[in-house]
Every structure is written in C-alpha cells, then in structure tokens.
Design a protein around this nucleic acid. Structure first.
Length: 379
RNA sequence: GGCGGGAUAGCUCAGCUUGGUAGAGCAAACGGCUCAUAAUCGUUGUGUCGCCGGUUCAAAUCCGGCUUCCGCUACCA
C-alpha cells in the first residue's frame, strides 16, 4: 500500500514498486463480519490463545473490505468456471481443501460423503500465527457463505526464536531439525519442544536449555528411575515383577496426575500436561529413596515389604510409560518391553489413558530385562 | 502513528483481576544415601519485582508519566 512505502520503495526489499491494476472477482467478506464477531465474542474458545482472538476481533472491528479472489495476470491456477481468463486466488482454493479433502461436495452416499458427515466440522485447526487471518476470518466466512459448519476452534501457535529472533533461513539463524535429532534423538526432540515452549506464544530454543532439560528431566529423573527399578528387580526379585501391591499415596497422586494431564492436553497445553506427568515421576523417585528398598533387602524377614515397594514403583513406571508414549513413542516402547509388559499387556499404543490411573495393572511375574540406557548422558 | 502484549532470582518463568514482610523449576552450595545414567533424597542462599512520581498504615500488585522489547495494522504465500 502507498502508506507502507519508504520514499516510493519497498520497506523490506528497498526496491521501487510498480502500481498495477486488474479486474478481479471478489468475495463479499464484509457481509460476514457481524456473524464472525458474534461467533468469537460468544465463543471465546473458538479462537485461542486470547492474544490471537483479540487480534482477530480487532481486525473484524477495524473495517473489513471485500476480498479479491481471482487473478488474471498469470494462468497457473484453477480457472474461474464462468470466466476462464481468471484463475482462483491460491488461498481461496487452498482453504477449500480442508473440507474437500474429507469429502465436501461428494455424493452424500459415497465414501467421501460419509467421511465428510463423520468428520466435519473439525475440532481444531492448528495454524501458525502468521496465517491466523486466513483461518479465523476468511475460511469461516467462506463456509458461512456455503452454509457449511465452521471448525470449532482455531489455535494459533507461535514461532521458534533463536537468540531472540525468528528462525530464518535467509538470516542463517535456522537450525535444521536433523542437527538436533542427531545429537539428542527424535524422542528428546519431541519432548523438548512440547515441554519447554509454551504452545501459543513464541519460544526460544537454545542448545544450552535443551541440554539442561535433557540431562535433568530425561536422563536423571525419568531414565534413571527406570534404571534403578530394573536393577533392583533383577537383583532382589530374580528379574520378575513381584505380587501386586498398593500404595495409597502413589495411587491417589497418579489419579490426580492423569486427570490434570489429560485436561491440559485436551486444552492444547502440552507444557502443562507434561509438567504434571514429570512431577509424578519426581515423586516416584522420592518414594524409592524414602522406602530404601536396598536397606529392606538386607533383612530377610522383610521380603514382603520389599516386594511391595518394588511393585508400587514398577506400576508407577508402567503408568509413566503410557502417559509419555504419545510424546516419546520409541523410548517408552523400549521401556515397555524392559518391564515385560509387551507380553502381558500387549502394545503400549493400545493402552487407554482412561485406564492409566487404575492401580495394579502390571501383572506379577513379568520378566524384566535390562536394556540399553534410555537417555544416555551426553556431552 | 493507532491498538495490544511484555520488562520479577545466574537461566526459563509464575504472582498482578480481589494491595499485607517476594515464589517454582533449573543451575549453585552443603548434608544424607548407595538400588541407579557422578544418580537420587533433603536443606540453604539468591532479588534496587525496567525507571520516576502519586494514592495508601501498607504497592511487584492500583493510578500517571517515561525507557525499552515484541505482536497486529489484510489480498507474497
């Protein structure tokens, strides 16, 4: 726009601009402003986080103009059916894909039509904050125009920053994911970005922070807990999970953990969800230290007590493995097999979150095996 | 320029709506323990709460001003 120019030149590229004009087809976006405003004001959860919703509302209230949705100066694109000199503006048909890909427009009795009926409207659109407007204003307006239900929620996530700046290839501040996964592994990568960066705001990545969390949370808290349990089961129980036992404190805390974590995950608060799970992990480490099974093991008259402590620890770790499986599929699978749970409980991916808090799931007699260290310490 | 958000322990951040001697995690120091990946458990310290002023018995919190960082300010996707 003329007001955005710096002495007639583009502010970003510093190049002179050329004014062009062409005739296009327009979408009457302005007609849907009242409906959209009402929707977002009545349903705050329809656009999150709040900062994104505020921007959308501010935009809608600032005076929305109709949208040019065709182009005539090039021919790559889908021709406008009634005007073949024009092609559809790329965002217009790109957005349409969300619905057509699951069957919008197909015969209601066809496979596509049935899929559309079963899946639409989407529960949530996850988008980057830079394309929020397309998904929170233009797309729902298009659906309203077509009399199709709009997605229940649009959630705009933030950017990854490095040294305070958005990762950028042109500024050479980008870090290839492979650089990180080669060093820390894919599971730690997934864990870090879900755990350390609040979803919905920009967040900073640094090798220092990633290393600190890897060592403290994954290697020390989680990996080492599994390591100490398996070593004791092998040493004190002949490698077999002892009889099912219960600890009121642990089972109560697990129930609270599952409830909080599930609630947070559903609300897309991945950081909060993982945080709850890791708090439970810490408590289990504390439980082991307080119970001192290595001391109990020295007294042959206290075998029953020893078995209880080890069982409670093992079942806690069983729950941790299931809870963290969506975040770290490979590592928790390894742990699952180490616990001997694969043979007795089946695939870890088949375990239900709704059953995780049920105590005493891990059967007695599971043969544990000491595998490779889950998260080896790194330099 | 307009609108919006942030500035709190070495680091990442919570607290501010409903004023009452400043919190968590990590890092650090010290102690315990030895099943474990020099691990784990416990204890401890840490702050001109961005700056200036106001209201108040009392301000990180309320009000005014300022500094500074960031986002949005539409049709490149």
């Amino acid at each position: 726009m003329p007001g955005d120019l710096d002495e007639g030149k583009c502010k970003i590229h510093g190049k002179p601009v050329e004014m062009l004009s062409e005739d296009n087809w327009f979408f009457k976006l302005s007609a849907f402003v009242p409906q959209l405003l009402e929707h977002y004001k009545n349903n705050p959860q329809a656009c999150e986080p709040a900062s994104a919703r505020n921007e959308v509302i501010a935009f809608l209230e600032s005076g929305v103009r109709d949208l040019s949705i065709s182009r005539s100066t090039f021919d790559w694109g889908i021709p406008v059916p009634w005007d073949t000199d024009q092609v559809i503006y790329v965002w217009f048909d790109a957005l349409l894909n969300y619905a057509t890909a699951v069957g919008l427009g197909d015969d209601p009795n066809s496979e596509g039509g049935k899929k559309f009926a079963a899946t639409w409207p989407a529960d949530v659109h996850l988008v980057g904050k830079d394309i929020l407007r397309f998904h929170a204003v233009i797309w729902p307006a298009m659906l309203m125009a077509a009399n199709v239900a709009i997605p229940k929620k649009v959630f705009a996530h933030g950017w990854l920053l490095v040294g305070g700046e958005k990762m950028s290839k042109s500024k050479l501040t980008g870090i290839a994911p492979s650089d990180i996964t080669e060093h820390f592994g894919v599971d730690a990568f997934r864990y870090y970005f879900l755990r350390a960066i609040p979803f919905g705001t920009d967040g900073s990545f640094s090798w220092e922070d990633m290393s600190a969390r890897y060592t403290s949370e994954l290697a020390n808290d989680f990996g080492n807990l599994a390591s100490r349990l398996i070593a004791m089961i092998e040493k004190y129980c002949d490698g077999k999970i002892p009889a099912v036992a219960t600890d009121a404190g642990l089972s109560k805390l697990l129930a609270e953990t599952v409830e909080n974590a599930d609630k947070a995950m559903v609300a897309l608060d991945f950081q909060g969800g993982i945080n709850s799970i890791m708090d439970f992990c810490k408590r289990v480490n504390g439980y082991v230290t307080e119970k001192e099974p290595w001391a109990i093991a020295k007294d042959e008259t206290r075998t029953a007590e020893l078995n209880e402590v080890l069982y409670n620890t093992a079942d806690s770790i069983r729950a941790l493995a299931v809870l963290l499986h969506p975040v770290m599929p490979a590592t928790t699978q390894t742990l699952w097999e180490s616990l001997g749970a694969q043979e007795t409980l089946g695939d870890i991916s088949a375990q239900k979150i709704s059953d995780v808090a049920t105590w005493g799931v891990l059967p007695a007699g599971c043969k544990v095996t000491k595998g490779a260290v889950l998260f080896p310490r790194l330099e």
